[in-house]
């Protein structure tokens, strides 16, 4: 449970201390890639909670989503159409959807747990 959080911290520290910089004109690609990564991560957590998680799907989805989003943004720049908006929209909607689902699952689990606890207490009495 704490390992992913540690991973996040390690990643942030690594990013802060390696002095790695993206040129200004490419920072929009990176931001869209970050969004894609976030979407995949949240999707993975949801899949994990719904017991449909698969390692390979998750990993390939993570990297292809990032590349696809950046590629879409790149194509948009060269076509003169703000295609990155499509990616932002799609990922944004999915992000909210997935977060809502995660919340529901966790809420259900919590309520069930409480119910069971209550029942056992009643039985004891």
């Amino acid at each position: 449970m704490w390992l992913p959080v540690m991973g996040l911290l390690i990643g942030i520290l690594l990013g802060l201390f390696t002095e790695f910089r993206v040129p200004d004109q490419y920072s929009s690609y990176l931001s869209i890639a970050v969004l894609a990564a976030l979407d995949t991560l949240i999707g993975g957590i949801r899949a994990h909670l719904e017991n449909v998680f698969e390692d390979k799907v998750f990993l390939t989805g993570f990297f292809t989503n990032i590349l696809l989003a950046a590629g879409l943004a790149f194509l948009g720049v060269h076509l003169g159409v703000d295609l990155y908006l499509a990616a932002v929209f799609a990922f944004g909607v999915r992000l909210f959807h997935n977060i809502a689902l995660i919340r529901r699952i966790l809420l259900d689990k919590w309520l069930e747990k409480r119910k069971i606890k209550k029942e056992t207490q009643d039985e004891e009495i």
Binding site: L8, G11, G15, F62
Partner: peptide, 9 residues
């Protein structure tokens, strides 16, 4: 995945 995400952020 979270490490990569953290790095990118």
């Amino acid at each position: 995945v979270t490490a990569v995400l953290g790095f990118m952020v």
